[in-house]
Design a binder for these strands. Structure first.
Lengths: 341, 341
DNA sequence: TCAATTTTCCAAAGCGCTTTGGAAAATACT
DNA sequence: AGTATTTTCCAAAGCGCTTTGGAAAATTGA
């Protein structure tokens, strides 16, 4: 069933039927309803490729799927993708994924030049702005998940990573903690750098000199969480609080504490940032983990909405989100132990 | 740059240029080369939507992305998707994912009716054949990852789940084990049922009556692995071997053994099926875990190839793959402990 | 009542490609 | 030499939609 036959069944022109289905007001409400009903009865669905050709829009959002052979698939990315895809479906956009083994930008370029996608989502940005600049040069609409230095020139969504470590550090200081160690993400990542500064500044604001021995960075795995915690917990001046960049890392830290017979929530306070990814449920830990929380799935959903707005012409300046993570206090944090016990 | 202007630049007709680019032999090799070069120089890329409209083919493969709010994203699915997307890119197919919160088949129906996708991948099939029958009724091309009872009527790829438990059980019996427990997946899943039968038959073939106490089934999480193992290891007649449905479960079982002071690889033998998903590396376990192995990513790659063949008209009968998992022997398995020690 | 508006519809063009059904040119066959 | 065949190219139609630029009909205003 195509427009033409539907139109002839209705005794109307293609034009009218098309406009009716697209809700134009220059066709009377009566016929609009009549057309809608007929379309439903005949099970008519407009051919998307014809529409795409006619309008020049595809209503497809592209995203690179990082599938390097031996790299394990980041659950963070998947969680984000889940939110994106969910919301996009609701908004009548489709998501096209493309494996980016080779050059990611090349994938995007082809996508855009061929008219496959209207817009591209950029994920996992690093300090280098190469990809961003290329997309800007190619004039391909895009939205970034994360930020770089020139983020005022494009549309993005990010969380305030400075706060992610600044707020908990400040809270810990108020509780009386002074020896606060951080188990951070990979030092090349923008978010890790921001978090580091958040921690550093919070300490400095209190007149405390940040102790470089209390800083560890690396891939946010449970193994690293364990070994980093082991290291800092066996320093001469053992920290009284541990700030982790992810719940997974905190899990490793919990294990280290258990191995060293240090009681979390009394002997030591542990906090983490919680992206709400599977297999890392902060509330089910023992004791429940205090976190700054910002579900990645929500970010995915929001970026779908932003994409839609972008394509509808909303100004870039209005499509720059910086989310403030919420600090959720649980049993893993307490005042530091009194020295005289 | 479109066909028309490219053609006029070359002083050729659109027809010729189009056919040249598509490698038809009714345009001379000389002009074919000339056209190819010009296309490259001008950076010409055919508009996919126009092509799709003209040919009726989209070269897009659709797959439902199960993103239920509170269901955690199965890493198995992701791993499969990674393989699929990787191979599809190489074969010049695109992958469209659609969130399937509501009715998955409905998503497919719309996809197919609108001409968005040429073919659909069905994953996570269960005993009910509802979805398969619907796709067959709607005449939507599809390939199934997994199998159901009527699998001779469609194209699929699956592993021999009967072997997954039959082969290791047989091997254990030959080593002298008789008390073999299984930590299986959810009992509704087709693969879990097949595996159960594999175990059961292998025992019966040796004249051993399968002990129902030695059977546990449930979601293949580390937690379940731990608790299932705890249960069977504390039975009056403790099993000498544990057969797990996934490496993740085996991890839990290892932990249970450690808690009960049972030495894996000497006091007890443990095996598992290994889909090669991230965060579950059998070789890095201590002792290294014996597995039947069949990487899900490979299955994803293969299904992309099958999809291409299907769309090129290959007969369904030639697109039914049943992969035999390989049994990889490692230190977690040994002969059963002698009773007199 | 007739002209000016507004409402409602439509014919036709166009999106950029593929494909059909030849035609012209080149080559091969008597 | 003239005819048959093959090679190489092309004009035009068509894929199924949207959109433009009216035209006809209905409504309003005087």
């Amino acid at each position: 069933m195509n427009l033409k036959t539907l139109a002839s069944h209705l005794g109307l022109s293609q034009t009218t039927v098309s406009r009716a289905l697209n809700g134009y007001t220059d066709v009377s409400l009566a016929t609009r309803n009549r057309v809608a009903e007929a379309a439903k009865n005949f099970g008519y669905r407009p051919n998307v490729n014809a529409r795409r050709l006619a309008t020049g829009r595809s209503s497809v959002i592209g995203i690179a799927f990082p599938t390097d052979m031996n790299m394990f698939l980041d659950p963070h990315f998947i969680e984000f993708l889940a939110g994106l895809s969910e919301k996009a479906s609701q908004l009548d956009y489709d998501i096209m994924i493309s494996s980016s083994q080779n050059d990611e930008v090349d994938v995007y370029r082809r996508f855009a030049e061929k008219g496959t996608v209207d817009l591209v989502i950029l994920s996992n940005v690093d300090l280098s702005e190469e990809r961003i600049r290329l997309l800007q040069d190619l004039n391909i609409p895009f939205i970034v998940h994360g930020r770089t230095a020139t983020c005022d020139t494009y549309s993005y969504i990010d969380i305030n990573n400075y706060s992610v470590f600044h707020d908990p550090t400040k809270m810990l200081l108020e509780l009386g903690h002074e020896k606060i160690a951080i188990l951070n993400g990979h030092p090349d990542r923008v978010y890790a750098i921001e978090r580091f500064h958040g921690w550093q500044d919070a300490l400095n604001e209190r007149g405390i000199t940040p102790n470089p021995d209390y800083v560890r960075s690396g891939v946010m795995s449970e193994e690293n969480g364990y070994s980093f915690a082991m290291e800092v917990l066996q320093l001469g001046e053992r920290p009284t609080a541990l700030l982790c960049s992810s719940v997974i890392m905190a899990k490793g830290a919990y294990k280290a504490c258990s191995d060293l017979d240090i009681k979390v929530g009394s002997d030591i306070s542990i906090l983490a940032h919680d992206d709400s990814v599977p297999l890392a449920n902060a509330t089910e830990m023992d004791p429940p983990l205090t976190v700054t929380r910002s579900p990645l799935r929500d970010a995915g959903r929001e970026i779908a909405i932003m994409a839609m707005k972008y394509l509808k012409g909303t100004d870039i300046k209005e499509l720059q989100c910086l989310w403030q993570p919420e600090l959720i206090f649980r049993k893993s944090v307490a005042a530091p132990p009194r020295d005289d016990i």
